[in-house]
Structure formats: C-alpha cells, structure tokens
Simulated assay, not measured.
Amino acid sequence: MSDRIAAAAKLAPSASLTVEEVLRVRHWNDHLFSFSITRPPSFRFRSGEFVLLGLPGEGRPLLRAYSIASPAYADELEFLSIKVPDGPLTSRLQAIAPGDPLYLGRKPTGTLVADALLPGRRLFLLSTGTGLAPFLSLARDPDIYERFNEILLVHCARQVSDLAFREELESQLAGDPLVQDQALLQFHYLPTVTREAFRSTGRIGALIDSGRLFGHPLTGAPHFDPATDRIMMCGSMAMIRDLQARFEALGFREGSNAAPGDFVIERAFVG
C-alpha cells in the first residue's frame, strides 16, 4: 500500500467506505472518461449493480453512485463517467491519475440485474451516454448467456467519440477469457449517434419505429414480444420515460429484485 493510500485510509470517514487506488484512467474525449481502481478481496457484486465512489470533501466525503462497468470476476473495478466542469465531484474526479486514492462504498446494489427479470429468449440492453456502464458488466457475465439465447446492446450517444468501448464491443468481446465463444454467437452491438454522420443515426425510439433495431441478426419476431423478450434500460430520463411507456403499452411489466418482471430500469438514477 502506497503512503498516499495509507494516509487516506486513516482518514476514511466511515466503516461503510474503503480507500482504493486508481490504477488506470482513459480519456475518451473532452467530456467522457473511464477509470479502474483496486478491488478489495471481500468486495462482491452482481453484474449491473452500482456502488458509491467519492473523494474527500469539506467535512464529509463527496460521494456519487456509479455503475460498475467491469465483470464480476475481474480483479479490478472499472467505471465510466462524464466530465462536469462545475460538478462538485466530477470536476475533481476527472483529474485523477494512477496512484490517487478514491473512496469506495462497501455495499453495491441496484435493479439492473438478471435476477430482476423473468426467463426469456432475447435480452435487449438499451443505453444512452454513460448508461452503457452496467451493460459492459452484464455483457461479460457468463450467466447472461445461459439465461438468454441472444443479447443486443444498443448504445446511443451524441457523437462517435462518445461510443466508449466501441472496438471491444464491435469485436463481440473477442479475447474475453470467459464469454468470447458464447458472445460470438449470441451477442450483438448496435451503436447509434444523433449529432454526426455515422452508419447508424437516430435515437433508440427512432430505431424501433423504423425497424432498424430488429434488422440486426436477431432471431424471432421483428418486434418486441413480452412472452419472450426482456429489456434493461439505463441512461437519460427522457429515453427511459419514452421507452417505458411504449413497453408498458405492449404489456411488459416492470421487474425488481423482489418481483421479477419483463423489463427493468435503475430508479436510483432516474428518480
């Protein structure tokens, strides 16, 4: 343990937090970055869950919920974040570097987990912006490929450079130690942007309306079917409200850890 980490650990404000070390930082563009930190040996989570991260503040730590982007079997924890110049936490978090200390909550939680869904054949992971993060974890979870025949991850962003982890996802997770063989057959990735020319443009609702979403190599019905399809959504509030209303009108029921259903959202982020 470095001197900086040890010093921060002595100042940890609560038994509910540990002090971890920043290992890597990747800046995708001027408003988006990802970073990895050490993982405590006792830290356990389900793919799709979020956890509190933070930095020291005046009197109390500055904490915010972040979805875990790394798979549950990884030795490190990875996260995806926007850069907010005036944000109390993100204005400082975007300047972290390897070796810096970071607070990590001990108790991950969330509803974007497979346990909150009923069994099905197709799983749609619909995301905008940094809402991609929990689906990066889920897409690398071997259990997902046992539960569903096909997984389609849709990521909608403003510009092409916002499509974080695009190369890895376009390769169908080639090189992943646990899921690469299954992902080659079962995983599909559909990136789309709204403010630049790209091979796919438009919001997720427009992809659904035009049928382009079902033009991907998906078996089964060319539309959503509550008997066989399961859906997870994470991202902008506008996207979630629009799609939630669509799915409920089709007969989909929202699920939770206590009562699994046909679709789930992370209400901790959308209110």
Rank of each mutant, 00 (worst) to 15 (best):
A9D: 15
V19E: 00
R24V: 10
R24C: 12
V25Y: 10
H31D: 11
H31A: 07
F33S: 00
S36T: 15
I37N: 03
T38N: 00
E49V: 05
G54M: 03
L55E: 03
G59I: 13
I68W: 07
D75M: 07
E76Q: 12
L77I: 03
S81E: 11
D86G: 02
L93Q: 02
L93C: 00
Q94M: 11
A95L: 10
I96M: 01
G99C: 06
P101I: 07
T111E: 13
L112K: 05
L118M: 05
L123F: 07
F124W: 06
L125H: 11
L126D: 03
G131N: 06
G131K: 01
A139V: 12
D143F: 01
Y145V: 11
C156M: 02
C156N: 11
A157E: 00
R158T: 11
Q172F: 07
G175D: 03
L178V: 11
D181L: 10
Q182G: 12
Y189F: 15
Y189W: 14
V193Q: 02
T194V: 09
R195M: 05
G215N: 13
P217G: 10
P226A: 12
T228H: 05
I231Y: 04
I231H: 06
G235L: 11
L243V: 07
G251Y: 04
G255V: 07
G261N: 08
V264L: 10
E266S: 05
